[in-house]
């Protein structure tokens, strides 16, 4: 009971931060709206104009940032456990670049002579998911075919190799494909939640909702993975099955998020680190804290991206790197001092 209470106490500040930021992010835009009007509009008590702005323009974007951030952060935390290395993240495993291959291939295959898409753009997320899943499956297959002893290391190496392959494929496709589509692909590659619709929110939300029961059932397994492979196996863990299962969950989460918001980097790397420091990776509720931190990071990055250089909107992916990477380096150095 005590453990539950202390975990809750640690989660409260992050929740509070996310809520405050949600209000602020909904208020900020080409026409600023003070928090009281935002709350009124959210509750259905605001002016008609306010409600339209909040519900159709800003809220989908905010909600998508929150959900995608949570998904990417969770994927990162799972991967770090599976490969037993705190430096792992979804982009390292080629999943993000795989999604990019899917999108670029989609734009290339379904463009006609006049550079118009021959099918609806709404199929694009599906292409991204297919690409991410294909590359993720390839990493998993290569790793499970490998009978060697140091499997976590192999997963990382195969991931890095396939990520490089995917990047090369994207470069080739962009150059060989229609020029007009190239810029569209590039925008997607940087990662942005700007074009959010409620459909996107629904899709990512459903994906997350499907994963939550799995994570709850597997929470002991996820924790047991911090032990060295032999000790974990001796304690009763089916190591191979656990690794493949959680890897698949991470691929799924990354694919869902990347398909709708593009290649937003560093969230999967940084969020677990932050949660580890402020929450503790062995306290109950760690994954919840990771998800909240991820939401906060992406929402903050997107909000900053909107206000830094108006009317120009920077891609949120650039901002998560600018904010996340120095933070990550700082955490590394700090971690070193506390160990010494």
């Amino acid at each position: 009971m005590m453990a539950g209470v202390s975990a809750l106490v640690r989660l409260l500040p992050v929740m509070l931060l996310v809520s405050v930021l949600t209000l602020a992010a909904t208020g900020i835009g080409s026409s600023f709206m003070p928090p009281d009007r935002v709350v009124a509009a959210l509750a259905g008590q605001g002016s008609r104009m306010d409600e339209v702005i909040v519900w159709t323009l800003r809220l989908p974007r905010v909600a998508l940032a929150i959900l995608a951030g949570a998904a990417l952060a969770l994927a990162g935390a799972l991967l770090q456990r599976v490969v037993r290395n705190p430096m792992a993240s979804p982009s390292v495993l080629g999943i993000t670049d795989g999604a990019a291959v899917g999108v670029v291939l989609f734009l290339w295959l379904f463009s006609d002579q006049a550079n118009n898409l021959t099918v609806s753009i709404h199929w694009q997320p599906l292409a991204a998911i297919a690409g991410a899943a294909a590359f993720g499956a390839l990493v998993i297959a290569l790793a499970s075919l490998d009978r060697g002893s140091s499997k976590p290391l192999k997963i990382i190496l195969y991931g890095i190799a396939l990520a490089a392959l995917a990047k090369a494929a994207v470069t080739l496709l962009i150059i060989l494909g229609p020029v007009y589509r190239a810029s569209q692909a590039l925008t997607w590659l940087t990662g942005s939640v700007g074009a959010a619709h409620w459909q996107d929110v629904l899709a990512v939300g459903l994906g997350l909702a499907a994963v939550i029961p799995v994570l709850l059932l597997q929470r002991l397994t996820i924790r047991q993975l911090v032990l060295d492979p032999q000790s974990a196996a001796v304690s009763g863990l089916s190591l191979d099955r656990a690794q493949v299962c959680l890897l698949a969950v991470a691929v799924f989460l990354t694919a869902m998020a990347t398909a709708h918001v593009g290649a937003i980097g560093f969230v999967g790397l940084v969020a677990p680190h932050v949660a580890r420091i402020f929450h503790g990776q062995f306290r109950s509720g760690y994954l919840f804290s990771v998800a909240l931190t991820g939401s906060f990071l992406v929402l903050a990055a997107d909000t900053l991206a909107r206000i830094i250089a108006p009317p120009l909107e920077l891609p949120a992916g650039a901002l998560t790197a600018l904010v996340g990477a120095p933070l990550f380096l700082y955490l590394l150095v700090k971690g070193r001092q506390s160990h010494a």
């Binding site: 290395n85 430096m87 390292v92 976590p152 990382i156 560093f266 992916g317 790197a321 990477a325």
Partner: peptide, 23 residues
């Protein structure tokens, strides 16, 4: 693994700086 991951991370970080400057 750690050296490679550090390299990958730094490369991604620097690349996104580059992208932002170019944007």
């Amino acid at each position: 693994a750690t050296t490679l991951l550090a390299g990958f991370t730094v490369a991604a970080l620097l690349a996104s700086f580059t992208q932002t400057l170019l944007l």
